[in-house]
């Protein structure tokens, strides 16, 4: 108990403490239960003890990766957010968590990883911008293949691809699931009265990224935004339990002028990058030429190549 357990998770953005559903629900559970974790928010999954995120390194040096295992571990340490639940409420939690896993998770995988516009413009660009250099080249693609495989296995369709029909089917299930959750929540603050439980952590973890991400194709997001009690539920949890992340986002939003300024900054930054890489490429080519002795040949051919260079110009003048 002397040294706290260490939790490794994806760093946050869009006003969320973490961008990943699984990290988010573990963070939320730990907050609800008041577990003193040492949280490392990182953007390099290879720095996690298991090679994937989230991961919990306990003080006995065990590593847990599945959110359910992490929550069970915390519960054993007497950090139990479900302590006040009756047996029936515990049963309801289990049922609604299953409902989300069966009906919502496939649609979320589709929205973030399979739908081409969202994947290219949001998911891939976010991960490749945040990962360190060599990883950013191949890890987002590998994560996508992994998620696509998972969706194919969940749907038991080995040749599944992005498409309108699949999207319609997945979103229909997901919207139904969102509606059922909304009906269960009703006008309560949390699913079981006034204090949050593990079910609240699961719902928050699954819905908050969908609510807050800037998705180019936002069909499912639009539906969630139209369900008032769930949107309030998510923003209340953000304000109450992750005030720092929520504030960072609200600081960003009003200063749209600063955002425009940021865009202005980004362009020369990009140009400088382009210029630098062009210079680097040129330097590499020239040094290769020097080293292999092509340069001397180039010198001799320089004179020979000049006439053909002039020829087209002459032709034009003639014409």
């Amino acid at each position: 108990m002397a040294t706290p357990d260490e939790l490794f998770c994806w760093e946050g953005d869009f006003g969320l403490p973490s961008v990943s559903t699984e990290c988010l629900l573990v963070l939320a559970y730990a907050q609800f239960a008041g577990a003193p974790l040492k949280v490392h928010k990182i953007s390099n999954p290879w720095r996690s003890p298991s090679g994937s995120l989230p991961a919990l390194r306990t003080n006995q040096n065990e590593t847990l990766t599945r959110p359910a295992d992490i929550i069970i571990h915390l519960r054993k340490q007497k950090f139990n957010a479900d302590y006040d639940l009756s047996a029936k409420e515990g049963a309801d939690s289990l049922a609604f968590i299953s409902l989300m896993e069966e009906k919502l998770v496939p649609a979320l995988i589709y929205t973030f990883w399979v739908e081409p516009k969202n994947y290219v413009e949001l998911t891939r660009s976010w991960y490749s911008e945040h990962m360190p250099f060599p990883l950013s080249l191949f890890l987002p693609g590998r994560m996508q293949r992994h998620q696509l495989d998972k969706l194919r296995l969940l749907r038991e369709d080995a040749s599944l691809e992005a498409g309108d029909e699949l999207e319609k089917e997945l979103y229909r299930d997901a919207m139904e699931c969102i509606n059922l959750l909304s009906q269960r929540l009703g006008s309560q603050k949390f699913f079981f009265g006034d204090s949050p439980s593990s079910l609240d952590a699961y719902v928050f973890g699954h819905l908050a990224p969908l609510l807050k991400s800037r998705l180019p194709n936002a069909k499912l997001q639009q539906h969630l935004k139209s369900v008032e009690n769930l949107t309030h539920f998510c923003s209340d949890i953000l304000l109450l339990y992750f005030p720092r992340d929520a504030r960072e986002n609200s600081n960003q939003k009003p200063s749209s002028a600063a955002e425009a300024g940021g865009d202005g900054d980004e362009v020369p930054y990009k140009r400088r990058k382009q210029l630098l890489s062009a210079l680097f490429a040129l330097g590499a080519m020239l040094s290769y030429a020097f080293l292999t002795g092509i340069v001397s040949i180039q010198h001799q051919q320089g004179a020979l190549l000049e006439p053909p260079h002039h020829n087209p110009e002459q032709d034009e003048e003639d014409g």
Binding site: D92, A95, F96, S98, L99, E102, K103, L180, L181, R184
Partner: peptide, 8 residues
């Protein structure tokens, strides 16, 4: 909602 959840 509860019925659907328990079925899942």
């Amino acid at each position: 909602a509860e019925m659907k959840a328990y079925m899942e």
